[in-house]
């Protein structure tokens, strides 16, 4: 008895006191809401768009409608292109600032983060102002007599990808920076001493050692991209919707919550599949958190 009393005081009670608040929050603010979404996806709506608890698979059948499947594919394409561009820009950039010997290294790093302390919507709107028919870019082109009439750069898939790349870039730069900074200089020198050219060193030494950063960065870019409805709203002008736009419409103006819930299930399934793949290739979950 005495022993178990000690166990209670030294382990069970403090464990309960410290962990219970987190457990309660995660249960009622993460798990229960998700269960509600799953239930909602099987519900029906009446003629006034009220949700009624009558079991139906209609919402899932509606998912296969061609007008929606087109948007899933478009959404995946936008997310893929965004991820590729993020890697192509972020990799060399992170490499240069992570390996610089300059004492200003911390400042270079901070300068990546500072832009993201301005509201993301207003920065996306800044792009719209810059690219618009009356924007800086068009004015510059006209001033240089390169164009006569204003060019419409906006409202296509390209500008949506641009906005996504812009919004999600730090999620690629930060894990890459971390993994590149950890590279051991000795290994690179050893590779060079053994006669490897720069290209070979990169391919066989640097790339494998930093692939963890590429994978976690890709997860952190690809998945949010499917949901960032405001980017395609502001820059895509309705021509390049992502799955997030479809969901947003069902919950705000369209008022078909059960169908919106079924659409969200697609996002949940894609997320689970990608995270499973990520773990399969040896990605660490901790790299996604911090």
């Amino acid at each position: 008895m005495k022993h178990s009393g000690h166990e209670w005081k030294s382990n069970t009670l403090p464990a309960f006191v410290t962990v219970a608040p987190v457990a309660v929050c995660m249960l009622f603010l993460v798990i229960v809401p998700l269960i509600y979404v799953v239930i909602m996806s099987f519900c029906s709506i009446d003629e006034y768009y009220n949700v009624v608890f009558r079991f139906t698979l209609k919402n899932y059948a509606m998912l296969a409608d061609a007008q929606y499947t087109h948007i899933y594919l478009q959404s995946l394409l936008i997310a893929f292109l965004t991820t590729v561009f993020c890697i192509l820009i972020a990799y060399p950039f992170s490499f240069l600032i992570a390996r610089t010997k300059s004492r200003k290294k911390n400042i270079y790093y901070m300068m990546v983060i500072i832009p993201f302390w301005t509201n993301s919507l207003i920065r996306i709107y800044g792009w719209r102002t810059f690219l618009g028919t009356n924007g800086w870019l068009n004015n510059a082109l006209r001033f240089l007599h390169l164009t006569d009439a204003p060019v419409n750069f906006l409202f296509n898939r390209g500008t949506t990808v641009l906005g996504m790349v812009y919004c999600l870039m730090p999620f690629m730069i930060l894990p890459l920076y971390t993994s590149i900074e950890k590279l051991d200089q000795n290994l690179l020198e050893a590779s060079a001493d053994l006669g490897a050219r720069r290209g070979a060193t990169f391919l066989h030494v640097i790339l494998p050692l930093t692939s963890g950063g590429i994978f976690s960065g890709s997860i952190m870019v690809f998945i949010p991209c499917l949901g960032y409805f405001f980017v395609s709203d502001i820059l895509g002008g309705g021509n390049s919707d992502v799955i997030g736009n479809l969901i947003e419409r069902q919950f705000q103006s369209g008022n078909n919550w059960p169908f919106g819930a079924a659409l969200s299930i697609i996002l949940i399934v894609i997320t689970l599949l990608l995270v499973k793949c990520y773990q399969k290739i040896g990605g660490s979950m901790d790299a996604l958190g911090v």
Partner: peptide, 22 residues
């Protein structure tokens, strides 16, 4: 608990938003 903590981190924000709304 550990696994659940990763949900808000990886899942698209819009899913978090509509699940709470629901």
């Amino acid at each position: 608990i550990d696994a659940v903590l990763y949900i808000p981190v990886v899942i698209p924000e819009i899913v978090v938003g509509i699940s709470l709304l629901t």
